[in-house]
Write a protein that binds this DNA or RNA. Structure first.
Lengths: 131, 131
DNA sequence: CGTCATGTTTACGTTAACGTCAACTTAACT
DNA sequence: AGTTAAGTTGACGTTAACGTAAACATGACG
């Protein structure tokens, strides 16, 4: 398996983030790039995690929320049972959260569409009034 | 129509927010409660808006994002054409955003469920190994 | 070998979204 | 009238999630 390492610049371009952000995520232990001397090299694992981080953020989860979820995606079998069990429970909670969020989002979309229909009619009325 | 006014305490209890939060939202012009002397009285309109504010936050929208959307829900016909048109465009943008978000959320849910299935199998293996 | 781009650490600054006082005012009881 | 209870306005503090700037290291290249 080719390790497919990326520099910090590559990462920034690929994910549209700043170097500061990547270093920040590393400090928060969300990422753990290899070091070549002092320079960072990001692995496939780091990239998978970054994808999840950015997605999580878009849904309003905090970095700390996300950090707890991330371990779930490390399917390297390196986890002990107790640890795996805790991770599993965190994931259950998060899944329920996301499903509620999904239902609410549907509702919000429907509501907004309804409002927009009304708005469209109002605009049509304006155009009419102007003959 | 009964105006159905609520004090700040009523609001806090009903929506599980602090007084500080409601005053903050007012300062940011997200809410505009009536004044009885110096005290605030929240109307049905304020409550509708607060519902949307809290929902928006759960989806990771900033208060400024939300502020722009809120006018869409004031269907009192008091808007001028140009203003209504701008509001409509904001809403279109937001709607697209929310639809993308829903697609992504579906994907994330599916992914997480997949991971959890794998996790469940791992846990089963542990239980097996313990005979 | 110099220099220049690209990286690093360290440290302080910033913005959003509130929390936490303190010092007052007002309304409502007793 | 006195005293709570509930509300108000500042003003400053806090946390998360980075931005920004300074000072230094290092590898590649002409």
């Amino acid at each position: 398996m080719t390790d497919d390492l990326m520099t910090i610049r590559d990462m920034c371009a690929a994910y549209d983030v700043t170097p500061r952000t990547l270093r920040f995520y590393e400090a928060k232990e969300l990422l753990a790039p290899q070091r070549h001397g002092t320079a960072r090299l990001f692995t496939r694992r780091d990239r998978a995690r970054l994808t999840l981080i950015l997605r999580g953020k878009r849904f309003g989860f905090s970095l700390e929320d996300i950090r707890q979820l991330l371990d779930m995606y490390d399917r390297d079998g390196s986890q002990q049972e107790a640890q795996l069990r805790r991770t599993f429970e965190v994931a259950q909670t998060r899944l329920a959260q996301m499903q509620r969020q999904r239902a609410e989002l549907d509702e919000a979309i429907a509501e907004l569409q309804d409002q927009m229909e009304w708005g469209a009619r109002q605009l049509a009325a304006f155009r009419n009034a102007a003959e």
